[in-house]
Amino acid sequence: MKFIKIAWRPEFSGFHLDPTAYLDELPGLQATLPPGAWNFASEADHYSMRAPRCVKDLELSNISVPVRKEGRLSLGFSANPWKHESGLNIEYFQVSRFSVESDHEIDWMQGDTVLLDEILPFSGGCRHEIALTDSLIIVECEDLVATWGDV
C-alpha cells in the first residue's frame, strides 16, 4: 500500500493500523478515481474503526472468479458479529489483474480478516489493495461496486 500504514506490533500481539496519510490524500483523488471506487473509498465510516460500515474486521468468505474476461470478479466478506450489521460484496468490472499474495503459506481453513484497504487511480480505472491478516488481495479494474448486505 502506498499511503496506509500497517505494522505488526508484537508487544500488543496485534496490528497497528494508520489510514491518516490516505485520508489526507483521498479528497484529491475524486477526479481521478472511477465513480464506484470513489463512492466506496469516500464512505463516511469506511475508515472509522468502530463503525459498522468500516471494512476492518470483515472476514473474507468467498471469491468468485469469472471464466471469461468480460465477466465480473466478486469478493464477499462476512460480517464480524461484534461489529458489523451486514457483510460486504465487491464486484469488479473489466479486471486486468487479480492476485492473492502472501509471504507464507495461507491457511485457508482459518478466517482471514480485513485489516484495511486502499483504492488508488490506475491506468484505465483503479487499483484496490485489501490487506488481510494472512495475505494481500490486489485487483486492477475499470471500476467497482461495493454493496453492504447479505453475502
Rank of each mutant, 00 (worst) to 15 (best):
Arg127Lys: 14
Ile130Ala: 06
Ser78Cys: 11
Gly71Tyr: 12
Phe3Gln: 02
Val95Met: 02
His128Trp: 09
Lys5Met: 14
Ser13Trp: 15
Gly87Ile: 07
Ser42Glu: 10
Trp148Met: 00
Asn80Ser: 01
Asn39Leu: 09
Asn80Arg: 13
Leu136Val: 07
His104Pro: 01
Asn89Cys: 11
Glu129Trp: 06
Glu59His: 14
Gly71Val: 10
Phe98Trp: 04
Phe77Asn: 01
Ser123Trp: 11
Ser64Phe: 03
Thr113Val: 05
Asp143Lys: 15
Asp112Trp: 05
Ser123Phe: 09
Gly71Arg: 14
Leu88Asn: 02
Asp57Gly: 05
Arg9Phe: 00
Asp134Val: 07
Val55Ala: 03
Met1Lys: 14
Leu132Cys: 12
Glu85His: 01
Leu73Asp: 05
Gly125Asn: 06
Lys56Leu: 13
Pro19Asn: 02
Arg97Trp: 14
Gln110Arg: 07
Asp107Asn: 02
Pro34Val: 04
Tyr22His: 05
Pro81Ser: 04
Ser86Lys: 01
Glu118Ile: 08
Glu101Cys: 02
Cys141Met: 06
Leu73Trp: 02
Leu60Tyr: 13
Pro35Thr: 12
Ala79Pro: 02
Ser102Arg: 06
Phe40Lys: 14
Thr20Phe: 04
Asn89Ile: 05
His128Pro: 02
Trp82Cys: 07
Asp112Pro: 02
Arg53Leu: 01
Ser61Leu: 12
Phe40Pro: 06
Trp38Phe: 08
Ala146Leu: 04
Ile90Gly: 09
Phe98Asn: 00
Ser102Gln: 05
Val67Lys: 14
Pro10Gly: 13
Asn89Asp: 02
Arg50Glu: 15
Glu118Gly: 09
Phe77Tyr: 07
Pro19Val: 08
Gln110Thr: 03
Ile138Val: 09
Met49Thr: 09
Val95Pro: 01
Val145Ile: 05
Trp108Phe: 08
Asp57Ser: 08
His128Glu: 09
Tyr47His: 05
Glu43Tyr: 00
Gly76Cys: 10
Asp103Ala: 04
Asn89Thr: 11
Asn80Lys: 14
Asp57Ala: 07
Ala37Gly: 07
Asp24Pro: 00
Asp57Phe: 00
Arg97Met: 12
Val139His: 13
Ala44His: 02
Val65Thr: 03
Ser48Ala: 10
Ile138Glu: 09
Ala131Gly: 13
Ala79Arg: 13
Pro10Trp: 07
Leu58Cys: 02
Met109His: 04
Pro10Thr: 11
Ser86Asn: 05
Leu144Phe: 12
Ile119His: 10
Phe93Cys: 08
Pro66Gln: 06
Ser135Val: 11
His128Met: 05
Ser99Thr: 14
Gln110His: 06
Glu85Pro: 00
Thr147Ile: 07
Phe77Ser: 01
Asn80Val: 02
Arg72Val: 03
Met1Ser: 11
Leu144Met: 01
Thr20Ser: 08
Ile106Phe: 03
Gly124Asn: 05
Tyr47Phe: 07
Leu136Met: 09
Cys126Arg: 15
Leu26Thr: 11
Val100Gln: 07
Tyr22Val: 09
Lys83Met: 13
Leu60Ser: 03
Ala41Gly: 11
Ile90Arg: 08
Ala44Ile: 11
Lys5Ser: 13
Val95Ile: 04
Tyr92Val: 06
Thr32Val: 15
Lys2Arg: 13
Ser99Trp: 00
Leu120Ala: 14
Gly28Thr: 04
Pro34Asp: 15
